[in-house]
Design a protein around this nucleic acid. Structure first.
Lengths: 255, 255
DNA sequence: GAGTGGTCTAGACCACGAC
DNA sequence: TCGTGGTCTAGACCACTCA
């Protein structure tokens, strides 16, 4: 009855993947439920679940208990070049742009991060990245970036409270900002001349999985330090988190 | 009988993880078999399998059919800085080093990659990275890097056949090389002044999963181009593949 | 042949979300 | 209330590895 030697759950996953790629099941649309898969292929529930599990591990779908599994969009256009920060430097009121619009090749106004801005003392970990004493006052900015409603990435970044208190950087409504972090600092008279990024791949935390709707695949996490022309650390991001699939980080090294 | 609200398979996974961290189950040692887990915790086979699956997704164990599941070592010391290529440039016969020994902070002779060197025409993809016509003759080097027998990463890199034919680079026994790719090229009188790397996170191919003994977690894949002082591409690596866990890539950007 | 993991079935009870 | 996915049980047959 089944000439194909591959496991049934792989075959079912292949067919579902084909429907997603063909657009038969669009972005955000529900996958057939486990019961529907059982009916269509005449398999046990565990086999249907295994098929969906394959797609979940691939990051093609995300699953919500009590609701179903849904197709995640492919945001393959995502692209982060090491030249991205130049877009920040070159942003002007007449031609507003940020590193994020640069990455995705989109207009400024399609990019609408939610921002939560708080004040907190530096944890030992962040303090070390800042090269200041633990407990130093920091402004913390938690952002979620979305493109047409779909989360593309999220970040937590820190500024020195002494440097930004009372400025728009420390208040709401300052995001999306012209020129991103570099632009923020430029508006305060701080010139960023060097950025150091450390990239890690890991499984998402529960919150990241929920916010990015990435229940199973890996994420790319970037820890960033920005230095001014005096060699001082003026911004720390820990971390900037992207869904692992489809992201591409480009760096240039001069010897 | 079970006061803990967490699912049994999570609790079992936690206990197994604890034993791994405590050293009760050492690196390379087998996990309890599914049958042993069933006996110890009195659970059904699927529950035992789910527990092992958790550890497999975390990259803590790898599984071989018909044999068992085994503990993967944590190679957390892995660390790749953007300054790594300077180690290649500065390598001398008196003080041999490569970017890989630099990454791991180990002596030269503990690093023993297997090498397979072949000749092949450039695929359209590699040709584009090299900025040459498809079909151009290339020397291909497939390497697997190991540390005390454990695979750390693998790479496929290409050189222009015209440039390296008849040199040690094109022959066996040239790896581990002093100075890695940069050293190779230096020995031919080619000076590498610029390296461009693109980092992606993705699930491993079947071969990568087997070689790296990473059946389930993500990998970090780097596509690299090396440029000489005339702006010509003199080496392409596609791709350098690391197990996703524990790797850290550091880059510096000057604005 | 004994032990291992890979796949699969046919049930069960539960928590959650939408209506 | 009903449909969804999350967890769990108790079996089964298979392919693979090792002694």
């Amino acid at each position: 009855m089944n000439a194909d030697a591959r496991p049934q759950y792989v075959q079912i996953a292949d067919e579902l993947r084909r429907r997603i790629d063909a657009g038969t099941i669009g972005y955000g649309a529900p996958l057939p439920s486990e019961q529907e898969i059982r009916d269509e292929w005449n398999v046990a529930r565990n086999t249907a679940r295994q098929a969906v599990e394959v797609l979940r591990e691939e990051g093609r779908v995300y699953t919500l208990k009590g609701r179903g599994s849904f197709v995640r969009p492919k945001l393959d256009a995502r692209r982060v070049a090491s030249s991205r920060y130049r877009a920040d430097v070159e942003s002007t009121p007449e031609n507003p742009q940020t590193s994020v619009t640069h990455d995705y090749g989109i207009r400024f106004d399609r990019h609408n991060p939610d921002a939560v801005i708080t004040t907190e003392p530096a944890s030992p970990e962040v303090a070390e990245l800042f090269n200041v004493a633990a407990g130093t006052g920091l402004v913390r900015r938690d952002l979620v970036f979305r493109l047409d409603g779909w989360p593309t990435h999220m970040s937590t970044s820190f500024y020195l409270a002494d440097m930004v208190a009372g400025t728009p950087v420390a208040g709401p409504g300052s995001e999306p900002a012209q020129g991103g972090a570099v632009g923020h600092l430029k508006s305060l008279g701080v010139r960023v001349v060097r950025v150091v990024e450390a990239v890690e791949s890991r499984m998402p935390t529960d919150r990241e999985a929920e916010v990015l709707r990435m229940p199973s695949g890996p994420v790319l996490a970037i820890t960033r330090q920005m230095f001014d022309d005096g060699g001082r650390v003026v911004e720390v991001a820990r971390e900037i988190v992207y869904p692992g699939d489809g992201v591409r980080l480009e760096y240039e090294i001069n010897l």
